[in-house]
Amino acid sequence: MSIKKIIEGKKEWRAHVARVKALPQDYQIVYKEMQKYLFKVGPVELGEGIGLLSEILSFLEEGAAAGKDVLEVTGTDVAAFCDALIEDSKTYLDLYQESVNQKVSKDKKE
């Protein structure tokens, strides 16, 4: 019960989830899997609010409203679609590795 509260207590997130739920079933499935993948890969935009997820949702809503099958709009390789979406984004991993490299080069100088 309380887990729902903490997430859905955030007004913005609640509105977001409501939009997801309004999608047709097949769109919901694809959206949720995409979201899970993005959380794992960790593009930095995710930490900056729901902008990226909200954008993706708008894109899917448009396809759903036009009555298309979800894979018709994302393509069958949904992972490739996700990768293309965050291609220019740094991930948490990139930032972490940069900080490690900086530390290494700093240590070398000292």
Binding site: E55, F59, V73, T74, G75, F81, A84, E87
Partner: peptide, 17 residues
């Protein structure tokens, strides 16, 4: 023929960015 809306979307998003 392989182009779907998703393909275009990733491109327009990049142009926008």
């Amino acid at each position: 023929n392989d182009v779907v809306e998703g393909t275009v979307y990733t491109i327009t998003m990049r142009l926008e960015k």
